[in-house]
Write a protein that binds this DNA or RNA. Structure first.
Length: 268
DNA sequence: ATGACTCCTTGCAGGAGA
């Protein structure tokens, strides 16, 4: 497919943890149709590479690259009217890491990193150790990306609630891996490299959530967590014009427990 | 609270998610 000219146009870049591309395909296609993101980073495909529904996604007007895995994990990058040019799959720093949690592409002038950070529960334990080690690898790779001096977005499910303001009530989650001081400190060190948390930058004093537990009517009661983030390099942050969550998707038929989260970027 | 809900599996109950 011929690459669309992204130069000179506003771009909507989104991240969406679909929680199973197999059962979520109708909801994904409805969202693509209604919101027309230019770039969509997907997480938790929960499907092997061969099961990726490329034909349906192409019919919706998107090209895609993906890194699947049976049952768990799995990430993809979709681009509307353009082919993402893959830069890497897998986060550097541990050749033995078999989880499909990172994929990176160039789309026009923009470098897009799509990530699914480990949940880390229960903590303490090996899963939490893996989460913290993964965060360190992400921090190192992000430093490399930032050093490019290019427009870069690191988008995905970070599985980190940055502060107690990013959750309906921290009390019952105090021991959860998503709220641990180590997780939050690592996320903060990432930001301190010079990345902008786009949702928080656009909405400094508004409680915004991107995930609502399937349990206990959390969606109906708006008991959410903000864990899906888009981090912008300075070259992209200066072009940030809007950021928000497509909450309506969480209220749809057979929804994911996450809602799509997005930024709008002005032309360069 | 070893709970709940929903996804996945060469499934049929159990692991994982957050």
């Amino acid at each position: 497919m011929a690459a669309r000219a992204f130069f000179g146009t506003f771009m909507k870049i989104a991240t969406f943890n679909v929680n199973g591309i197999g059962s979520r395909l109708p909801a994904l296609l409805e969202w693509l149709e209604r919101e027309s993101p230019d770039v969509a980073c997907l997480q938790e495909l929960k499907a092997p590479d061969a099961a990726f529904p490329l034909a349906a996604i192409r019919l919706a007007g998107y090209e895609a690259i993906w890194h699947g895995q049976r049952s768990f994990n799995g990430v993809a990058i979709l681009a509307r009217g353009a082919s993402p040019v893959e830069i890497r799959r897998g986060l550097p720093g541990d050749p033995d890491d078999a989880h499909s949690r990172y994929i990176e592409a160039e789309i026009g002038e923009i470098v897009v990193g799509c990530l699914y950070l480990p949940n880390g529960n229960p903590q303490p334990g090996p899963k939490f150790d893996y989460k913290l080690a993964w965060l360190e690898r992400l921090i190192r790779h992000a430093d490399t990306l930032r050093g490019l001096g290019r427009p870069v977005v690191l988008a995905g499910d970070y599985n980190v609630v940055p502060t107690d303001f990013d959750i309906y009530d921290a009390t019952h989650w105090r021991k959860d891996a998503l709220l641990q001081p180590e997780s939050r400190a690592a996320y903060q060190r990432l930001l301190d490299q010079g990345w902008t948390d786009a949702l928080r930058a656009r909405h400094p004093s508004e409680q915004i959530y991107t995930f609502w537990d399937y349990f206990r009517d959390h969606w109906k009661r708006n008991r959410g967590l903000r864990i899906d983030h888009l981090l912008l390099s300075p070259q992209l942050a200066q072009r940030l014009v809007d950021a928000n969550v497509d909450n309506w998707v969480r209220g749809g038929e057979k929804p994911s427990d996450h809602a799509p989260t997005w930024v709008r970027i002005a032309p360069s």
